[in-house]
Design a protein around this nucleic acid. Structure first.
Length: 255
DNA sequence: ATGACGCGTCATACGCGA
């Protein structure tokens, strides 16, 4: 089963790229982030014409996540438990072929020392609780999306540039590591622990040209899902297209 | 010197992203 996560930075702005890319690559499960659109305006038919079932948690202007599946899935939730006041569309979960897919768009959190940073901390605590509880089921769980976390020094080109950033803050990385310590496997890092492999390059300052990127889009696998991992890769070439997202797709092949 | 970030919005400046 070929699965992928992709922060598209606006589904309307990326629609032509997305359709061509899906035709070429034919993933079975697609997790999208930052669709930046409300459900009623989502270009549903474009994806249905390719044979996808669409499960949406959209929002006007900002955020918004979706999961597309080749066969029908079961939508299980759109709300990350723990905060009834949270109205940002950053979470969607479906069951598909006995696997549980959790698509997230984790808050950015910048700048540090603000409500945004506190919101990120709180959101990560809720995610960690949720992923801890989920493990007890021994299901095959795939948590994938834009985590807005640079896990290690070699997940960015210039660590010194990120020292004060919410993507690399020690307390943020610690909360990400909590998931790894629970037994979730970083599907990309496990296959290559040495090289820098980035998933996002800023539009500004020639970041792509200079390969000044960060690895912040992740696929985490519960132990039983990790047993099924056959391959993983980052589709860097998409960053070279016309009108690219600032992120690129991250893939995993599961039995 | 060149060209200088992109998306969405009750736009034509601004919030937001990373």
């Amino acid at each position: 089963m070929k699965i992928v996560t992709f922060n598209v930075n606006g589904v309307r702005a990326r629609i032509d790229t997305l359709i061509g890319w899906l035709k070429n690559t034919n993933p079975e499960v697609v997790a999208l982030q930052e669709i930046k659109i409300q459900d009623t305006d989502f270009p549903l038919s474009s994806f249905e014409n390719l044979g996808y079932h669409c499960y949406l948690n959209g929002q006007k202007s900002f955020n918004g996540v979706a999961i597309l599946t080749k066969e029908k899935a079961k939508l299980s939730r759109k709300i990350l438990p723990g905060n009834n006041e949270d109205e940002q569309a950053r979470f969607i979960e479906v069951y598909y072929k006995k696997k549980r897919f959790i698509c997230i768009y984790l808050p950015n959190g910048n700048p540090k020392g603000t409500e945004k940073f506190l919101y990120k901390l709180e959101w990560m605590d809720r995610l960690n609780d949720y992923c801890y509880q989920a493990l007890k089921s021994e299901e095959e769980i795939i948590v994938l999306g834009d985590f807005n976390v640079i896990p290690q020094y070699n997940d960015c080109k210039y660590p010194a540039q990120w020292e004060e950033d919410a993507l690399f803050a020690p307390e943020i990385r610690a909360k990400f590591n909590y998931l790894l310590n629970l037994g979730y496997l970083d599907a990309i890092r496990i296959l290559d622990d040495a090289n820098s492999m980035f998933t996002q390059w800023d539009y500004r300052d020639q970041a792509w040209k200079e390969n000044n990127g960060v690895r912040i889009d992740h696929i985490l696998l519960s132990p039983s899902a990790a047993d099924k991992l056959e391959d993983s890769w980052i589709e860097t070439s998409l960053r070279d297209r016309n009108k690219p997202s600032d992120h690129v797709p991250v893939w995993a092949l599961l039995k």
